[in-house]
């Protein structure tokens, strides 16, 4: 992990759970990572592994009253976000930390114009005049490359295409020039062509504004193209973290290796068998205390390895893994 002084965010031993009818479900089970200043950390993992819950923990937007942070710390700008009172957190959110959500329609208000929503995002955090608000709204719409911004400001979200909505959400997230942007699957619902536009847009704005980014995705292609650091999540935990070149060249955990091998490559011979990971992603109720990838790894684990959690440690310079002796060779 990079030196503490150059990280904008430091997450330590974060535990987040939901109280459900079936009991307490630990969705994020003690994860630690840093976001390097001005860089992009990718969090990659399959459905249900806890990516969004991690994002909602950092922004303190967990569904209430069921979602709770049970332990750990999230240090940002010298304060622990876990301990910050909720009204203080509201000021940080949308100002210093912004989030782009997986589904734009949940974040946009369907009965308000785009312009009104942008204006509210600005006014919440500053005392600008009406004219200033309009000017910066138009500027931001231009930045996210929405054609005819003046006209779009008076439209409603449903009048926009999926890619355009995603851009409006990015505009809202960036209008107050946050230090940290959390983008939760910003392109999953979009075509590859629009995805490429949006990713390039985020990267450009990042360069221009010097912000740090957490990019959440299940797509290793996206990770490879835009991230500096990568954290691989599986079943509520981090199994591996490293620089992007290191991780793709030398994946150490059996899960990361399996994932990388199973994606069809453009240079593969058509209609040949792909490598596959056996079994299915476990549901939250089936999370095991020990190595959670054991039953899919195709490798024999001892009783002790199934029952004791392997430590998440540095196994090579700047390369960490959940060090199950069977899965990390």
């Amino acid at each position: 992990m990079t030196a503490a002084s150059s990280s904008i965010l430091e997450v330590r031993d974060l535990v987040t759970a939901f109280d459900t009818d079936a009991g307490r479900m630990t969705a994020v089970d003690g994860i630690s990572f840093n976001v390097p200043q001005g860089k992009t950390l990718g969090i990659v993992g399959e459905s249900g592994c806890g990516k969004s819950v991690t994002a909602f923990s950092i922004t303190r937007l967990l569904p209430q009253p069921h979602g709770k942070i049970l332990g750990g710390s999230i240090r940002f700008n010298g304060q622990d976000l876990v301990q910050v009172p909720i009204d203080e957190m509201q000021k940080i959110r949308g100002n210093e930390i912004s989030m782009i959500f997986q589904e734009p329609m949940t974040a946009l208000n369907p009965v308000q114009t785009v312009g009104r929503q942008l204006a509210e995002a600005i006014l919440l955090h500053s005392g600008c005049s009406k004219a200033e608000v309009l000017a910066s709204s138009i500027e931001m719409m231009k930045k996210v490359r929405i054609p005819e911004p003046e006209q779009r400001l008076s439209e409603y979200p449903h009048q926009l295409s999926g890619g355009m909505r995603q851009r409006v959400m990015i505009a809202m997230a960036l209008i107050n020039k946050p230090k940290l942007l959390i983008a939760d699957e910003p392109t999953t619902a979009l075509d590859v062509t629009v995805q490429a536009q949006i990713l390039e847009l985020i990267a450009d704005l990042q360069k221009e504004m010097g912000m740090s980014v957490i990019l959440i995705t299940h797509d290793l292609g996206v990770i490879a193209q835009v991230c500096d650091e990568v954290a691989v999540m599986y079943a509520g935990r981090l199994v591996e973290q490293a620089g992007v070149f290191d991780l793709f060249a030398r994946p150490r955990h059996a899960y990361t290796q399996g994932l990388l091998e199973s994606i069809p490559r453009l240079d593969s011979t058509p209609k040949t068998k792909l490598k596959a990971i056996q079994g299915n992603v476990p549901g939250i109720a089936d999370f095991k205390p020990g190595c959670r990838f054991a039953d899919r790894s195709g490798r024999e684990h001892t009783e002790a390895q199934l029952n004791t959690r392997p430590p998440f440690v540095e196994i090579a310079p700047n390369h960490r893994a959940e060090n199950c002796p069977v899965c990390v060779a």
Binding site: V192, T193, Q195, A196, Q197, L199, E200, D219, L220, G221, V222, I223, A224, Q225, V244, F245, F248, L260, I263, R265, L266
Partner: peptide, 18 residues
């Protein structure tokens, strides 16, 4: 051109579709 290739050594400048 828009396919995100799962290999960080193959990053490229894209001719983005507008």
């Amino acid at each position: 051109d828009a396919i995100p290739i799962a290999d960080p050594t193959q990053r490229r400048e894209r001719q983005l579709l507008r």
